[in-house]
Design a protein around this nucleic acid. Structure first.
Lengths: 343, 343
DNA sequence: TTGTAGGCGTTATCAT
DNA sequence: ATGATAACGCCTACAA
């Protein structure tokens, strides 16, 4: 079974007695070709079963209509929603999307960066791995003028494109909400502090305590490695075993928050009366656990869409007005039963 | 800021006084080049900062080292795990992965197929959209000898590559388990019957009833459009309002199963005593709902890995021994509290 | 408005 | 073991 020969612009040219360049231009809606000719050529191309070879075009332009994505792991609710938004937007604009997972290892991120670079992507969307602390592996893209948009887990550098949420305010509001419920010993499940998202959430927590004249008790601030379910259970046990246990927890993600609820319930602790809990992300599990978990809503799909738009817009611009833009999306406090003490 | 010029094999050739062909061969570990020369060339290439242009290679070979994926939606636990497995395996082999979402629309699937085809992917992994009933949009790939592997939601055709689970047996065992718990009026939440996965699960359910001499009551078989949470609640309400309500539910997915548990609890129904429930997939929500949901475990990541391997292996083979392989992976019944009536 | 010609970077074929 | 050359399909100065 031999593969059938592909139709090229040369075949169309021959048939129509035009030159290949005319065909090429018509197919790309070049203005210098008359409306009629363009229409005719497109019609015949379709009839002949012509398929543009994007590889050839990419080689010629040294740019493939492709957006690369670097993320930690696909199979997490937030990340897969993010990708969904990117894919949707990119595809509408005729771009492909290549994904690469770092599994939160810096080493993998470096390798993936190289592969994507060699694929001549026209833009890169990055959410940093947990380990990543330097950006040298991304320098190449910047040097070549390939736009990079960082999203969610971003570096601290100022002169780069970012699409983020206001983690600080979200952390502040979540904590404030707990205070308003009458809680005064509020624990915090904190993620790795070199990652902006977790650092900012903690900052918001600390400032909320201060602004409301509550003491900061370091025993109540638990440093997590990965905010996993197991870690959450252990942390909750330690907290509940304290001479003065907390009356609330603000967790930097939902997984750990849910584990806290489930563990505390097992110990006979009443949620939210004895322990109010609030999480972050609104993962599906948040609305299933009982009592339902209050949390911070993350506009994941929208973040993806905006990131992709940013890339597309740069790809379109010939000129180089590369003023880095930072988009900060609003979050929303979603109060469910796990934190409602009164009423 | 001008983009720096890229190093090509010509640059290396000039520097080393070899011909470009020798450089190319050395870089690809061609056997006809001596060990020493190969080593030298690779060393210098690295020093000069050479990056292979995979676009050019792809054009030349009319094949890009890329695997295309067509799925319904990325942001679902099963699908994102599947992709994760594919990506991991493909990347190790030096392949990129392009994703495209159909959002369960046939129309989108057709467009995506065309785009992927034009990208000269070397293989395609497909999980069909809910709507898809014909495969014409995939014919092109077959005609060109581009391997397609169908996964999970597959067509009924026999002469194609498939990676699936044994939905029939899973459905049978799930139902049988409920019967063993003493249930006799077992309802079924059924998905669209033109999709193999749901049809087979239902078949297993029906046969289990028959084999255990239980009557099939059509009032207890609910046809779902999308097995969503809302649909699940409604179906459960209708079932519980029946003159003779069911004493168990086997749901074709976890979302609907969880919704049934939560709704029934609200009505004061005891789970599992009055209503045993079992789902399908082991989504994260399954272990969070209370009582924890019994379910069928789906080896999603593994299915992805195997699918990718199948593509890679075909890409490697020069010859055309295209005997279609069907891989059926085992599932496992995971019994949690939602279905344990005794002990 | 359309045509000509050269090149994007690589690899395969044929020669040496 | 290595080299010369043509081709992959497209795009874009430049020319007409």
């Amino acid at each position: 079974m031999k593969a059938k020969k592909e139709i090229t612009i040369y075949d169309i040219a021959k048939k129509l007695k035009y030159s290949p360049s005319t065909i090429s231009r018509a197919l790309n809606d070049h203005e210098s070709i008359s409306k009629n000719t363009t229409l005719l050529i497109k019609k015949v191309a379709k009839e002949m079963g012509y398929r543009p070879n994007s590889l050839a075009a990419s080689l010629r332009n040294n740019k493939s209509k492709t957006i690369g994505i670097m993320i930690s792991r696909i199979n997490r609710p937030f990340v897969s929603s993010l990708i969904s938004g990117i894919e949707e937007t990119a595809r509408k604009a005729g771009y492909n999307v290549i994904i690469s997972q770092s599994n939160d290892k810096y080493e993998n991120e470096v390798i993936n960066a190289e592969t994507l670079y060699n694929s001549r992507i026209s833009g890169l969307i990055v959410s940093l791995s947990m380990e990543t602390r330097k950006l040298e592996h991304l320098r190449r893209f910047m040097d070549q003028g390939i736009p990079i948009v960082f999203v969610d887990r971003v570096p601290d550098e100022l002169d780069i494109h970012k699409v983020i949420i206001d983690n600080y305010t979200a952390g502040y509001k979540a904590t404030q909400h707990l205070i308003e419920q009458g809680c005064s010993r509020i624990a915090h499940f904190a993620g790795a502090q070199h990652r902006n998202v977790y650092r900012e959430r903690k900052k918001g927590y600390l400032d909320a305590l201060k602004d409301h004249h509550l003491p900061v008790d370091n025993d109540l601030i638990v440093s997590f490695k990965s905010l996993s379910f197991g870690e959450g259970e252990k942390a909750t046990r330690n907290l509940l075993d304290l001479p003065q246990p907390p009356d609330a927890i603000f967790s930097a993600n939902d997984t750990a928050a849910v584990s806290a609820i489930m563990y505390a319930k097992k110990r006979g602790i009443k949620i939210p009366e004895e322990l109010a809990v609030i999480g972050f992300n609104d993962d599906p599990i948040a609305s299933i656990v009982e009592p339902a978990l209050s949390t911070v809503i993350h506009p994941a799909i929208k973040m993806g869409q905006i990131s992709a738009q940013r890339i597309l817009q740069h790809a379109a611009e010939e000129d180089e007005n590369n003023s880095p833009e930072v988009t900060v999306l609003p979050t929303e406090l979603l109060i469910r039963d796990s934190s409602k003490k009164k009423a």
